[in-house]
């Protein structure tokens, strides 16, 4: 099965603020094959969450299209969209604020079942049986069925969020930093659970994170975003083995490996992230780039080019066939 489940075309989302227009996402295009995972990495404010939310139309984009099984979800009417939503779910970052504190575990997981009328007749016993099944799938003990979120720890709450997303048997799940609020030992439990669910059910994921080790562990393809733009896109192993964009290089070298003496040589970046407010038509990474060369780089926004099969880079200094004119300045 190589058919694309999701096709995102030139997606843009701009927010108007008193200081100008923030170009949170500024023309992103990618496809996701059935059963695969696309990882989106980047630092705060790069537009990764906005991209994830627009992919299931939780926010309306400024421009662009998202095709789910060939249908444009942005041109759907309310009823058609509600129907499509059954196949598209999201797991949120913060298991503390994404659950309704006044709903028990049962209420939370049963709500999508009732709304989408997954269980014919919607008899209480049937729903309860299904909720218990789902709790089992995500590793929640049945005795917790009538507890409220505040009685549970972060790991368990995140499991409720996952069970809620799985309830409608979706084909596609956006995982927005699903483990970043959790302790490492719990993080590994949740990552293993998501991986197993993907294998068992053929789920398709967008996996959004700032943790590069996690994204490598999880993704088939990785997209690196910087201030609303894709700067590099490649299969996970290729990206880590052969990073080309200066920003990707800096990100990879900023990973702190838990090994003695492993963190000596690093590419340090100067400056900090800015906000893409009314950005001029140029390379947005240039102000922080160690390789910035006015003669080459001041030529408008660099296009995303395929430099080797399936490996795309947006940098004026890198071209087809791996042409690499990067010179440390």
């Amino acid at each position: 099965m190589t058919e694309n489940l999701i096709e995102i075309k030139n997606l843009k989302k701009h927010f108007k603020t008193p200081n100008g227009t923030v170009h949170a996402v500024d023309g992103i295009s990618f496809d996701i094959k059935r059963g695969e995972t696309v990882g989106i990495v980047g630092e705060s404010g790069c537009g990764k969450t906005t991209t994830g939310r627009a992919a299931i139309r939780l926010i309306e984009p400024t421009a662009g299209q998202v095709f789910f099984e060939g249908k444009d979800i942005f041109s759907m009417g309310r009823r058609a969209l509600n129907k499509a939503r059954k196949d598209m779910q999201i797991i949120f970052q913060d298991p503390f604020s994404s659950l309704n504190p006044r709903m028990t575990v049962f209420d939370t997981i049963a709500l999508p079942l009732k709304y989408h009328q997954i269980i014919s007749g919607s008899k209480k016993v049937d729903i309860e049986r299904r909720v218990i099944e789902l709790m089992e799938t995500v590793g929640l003990a049945e005795r917790l069925i009538n507890t409220y979120p505040h009685e549970l720890d972060g790991g368990r709450r995140q499991r409720i969020g996952i069970a809620r997303a799985l309830a409608v048997e979706p084909k596609f799940i956006v995982c927005d930093e699903p483990v970043s609020a959790l302790d490492v030992s719990i993080q590994a439990q949740i990552l293993n659970l998501l991986k197993k669910l993907q294998k068992d059910r053929g789920l398709t994921f967008i996996f959004i994170t700032h943790d590069l080790a996690v994204v490598k562990h999880f993704s088939d393809t990785i997209i690196v975003m910087y201030l609303g733009l894709e700067v590099e896109k490649a299969p996970a192993n290729e990206l880590f083995a052969n990073p080309m964009h200066p920003y990707t290089k800096a990100l990879l070298s900023a990973i702190l490996v838990p090994k003695v003496g492993a963190n000596k040589d690093r590419v340090a970046l100067r400056g900090e992230l800015s906000m893409p407010i009314d950005p001029p038509d140029e390379c947005r990474f240039a102000p922080r780039c160690n390789y910035y060369n006015p003669a080459k780089c001041d030529k408008g926004r660099p296009p995303l080019i395929e430099v080797s099969p399936n490996h795309f880079v947006a940098c004026h200094c890198i071209g087809p066939g791996g042409r690499n004119d990067l010179v440390l300045q």
Binding site: L212, L251, S253, L256, L273
Partner: peptide, 9 residues
């Protein structure tokens, strides 16, 4: 953020 974390450390 990671690149900022690296600078501060």
């Amino acid at each position: 953020d990671v690149t900022i974390q690296a600078q501060v450390l």
